[in-house]
């Protein structure tokens, strides 16, 4: 069965299809959670929560061809909520010292830069560069004109650039 067929059946209420769809998307969901939350335990919990939320909401998904991206967006929403709460209620020293995914310099630099973006910008960058979702599809899925998506992405990249440039300057100084 293709992912599209799975999604169609899952929307129609087929539990088996829903689970298969979740399995087919699990790597992408896990990696998204990891990129936001920085540790495996939280990411696993996130996958559980997103499964729960997705099951409750899948009937409202209108475009089965974007089921995977829809799931990823639920994940991003969830992760943002979690990060918000962490910021609000605790100053988590442990979180600061967590190493997350990689020690690679570029990775850390990009992560820092991404953290400066607005939530919508970060979501866009994730979809485009981590999950390779086409601009056309993002536009279609969010009912936004393609040109608007392009402009937003352009702005996001521009603000990444200025962050990189700034950092570069600081280092040079």
């Amino acid at each position: 069965m293709t992912d599209l067929e799975l999604a169609v059946k899952a929307i129609a209420g087929d539990d088996d299809a829903f689970l298969l769809l979740m399995y087919a998307t699990k790597d992408a969901l896990f990696r998204t959670a990891l990129a936001y939350l920085k540790n495996e335990e939280d990411a696993l919990e996130a996958v559980q929560e997103v499964t729960f939320r997705a099951y409750e909401k899948i009937h409202s998904l209108r475009k089965p061809e974007y089921a995977k991206t829809w799931l990823i967006r639920i994940m991003m929403n969830y992760c943002r909520d979690v990060l918000h709460k962490q910021k609000q209620f605790t100053f988590n020293k442990e979180a600061l010292s967590q190493h997350g995914i990689s020690e690679n310099y570029t990775y850390l630099e990009v992560e820092e830069a991404l953290a400066q973006l607005t939530e919508a910008q970060r979501e866009l960058v994730h979809l485009k560069y981590l999950h390779d979702v086409k601009i056309k599809d993002i536009a279609d899925m969010t009912a936004t004109p393609e040109s608007t998506v392009k402009t937003r992405l352009y702005k996001a990249l521009k603000s990444l650039r200025s962050y990189f440039d700034e950092k570069g300057e600081v280092r040079r100084v």
Binding site: Y23, F30, L44, I101, V125, Y129
Partner: peptide, 22 residues
């Protein structure tokens, strides 16, 4: 961003625990 993605994808996915979470 491409390098950032590569780093994320290098990370091993704990398949069994992930399926259990689902």
């Amino acid at each position: 961003l491409e390098k950032w993605k590569d780093e994320i994808e290098k990370k091993e996915v704990p398949d069994i625990r992930l399926e259990q979470a689902i």
